[in-house]
């Protein structure tokens, strides 16, 4: 039964973390939404549309954070063949893909009132779009093979190659962007983010992190159960 030993331990740990994650999520979400809508002033230049930032920027952070989790899990899987690591990557990828899609969609909804266009081939948006494609590829390769172990290892290799490529993609897109874009691009990273705006941003970021922990743990349990199921089915077939 050593195959189950690790997951059982994991399940106990997860059950201990889950209530805390729910608590943190509820508290930070309520306070974050309050700050985002009521507790912070409209921006001097952007007006009320700045409120989109409090969901857009944390989503973009989570998009990258989840890829780091996938990549870390892939590395662990690849080097030590840890049985849980392979599942961690699989569990984190859909969450990351969701946050990436949300970053793109909220970015478009923010862009329309501020830039006057839903989409601009701006360096950040473009590299987030490519990141979304990397997630799609990672999830597609998981589904492409019947044997879970092989699919997982193939997906791990892809995720690691993606990690090497991410900075290059980021750099190349920025470079391409300065080549083609007129100089007057709206940039967020000016020095003038006031504390009034940092707090809701910070709170929403915590809420999203807590959400990640929550859903990630449930998805880990899901993958462990799926793994158990396939073992049980195997043993039933072989008698």
């Amino acid at each position: 039964m050593h195959r189950f030993a690790n997951p059982a331990q994991f399940n106990r740990l997860a059950d201990r973390i889950l209530p805390w994650a729910k608590l943190v999520l509820a508290a930070s979400l309520v306070y974050g939404i309050y700050l985002a809508f009521l507790g912070s002033p409209p921006d001097q230049y952007q007006g009320e549309s700045v409120r989109i930032m409090y969901v857009h920027v944390p989503a973009a952070w989570m998009a990258m954070f989840c890829y780091l989790v996938v990549a870390g899990a892939s590395f662990t899987e690849f080097v030590w063949r840890h049985p849980l690591a392979i599942l961690a990557g699989k569990a984190a990828a859909p969450i990351g893909a969701t946050f990436t899609a949300l970053a793109l969609i909220t970015g478009a909804l923010w862009g329309k009132p501020t830039w006057g266009t839903y989409w601009q081939w701006d360096g950040r948006m473009t590299s987030v779009l490519v990141l979304f494609f990397l997630y799609l590829g990672y999830m597609a390769i998981w589904r492409s093979m019947d044997e879970e172990d092989k699919a997982g290892r193939a997906a791990s290799i892809l995720a690691l190659v993606g990690v090497i490529n991410l900075p290059i993609i980021k750099f190349s897109v920025e470079w391409w962007n300065t080549l083609h874009q007129p100089a007057s691009v709206f940039r967020l990273d000016g020095p003038t983010i006031s504390a009034d705006m940092l707090w809701p941003l910070f709170m929403m970021a915590i809420a999203f992190k807590a959400y990640f922990v929550l859903v990630f743990l449930y998805r880990m349990k899901l993958e462990i159960n799926r793994r158990k199921l396939s073992v049980l089915r195997m043993s039933r077939v072989t008698g």
């Binding site: 490519v130 494609f133 290059i168 190349s172 897109v173």
Partner: peptide, 20 residues
């Protein structure tokens, strides 16, 4: 199809530098 999904995003930098 899967191959193109995996490979095309990784081709982006090459394309950008070459056309640049």
């Amino acid at each position: 199809v899967l191959l193109s999904l995996l490979v095309l995003p990784l081709y982006v930098p090459t394309l950008i530098f070459a056309v640049g």
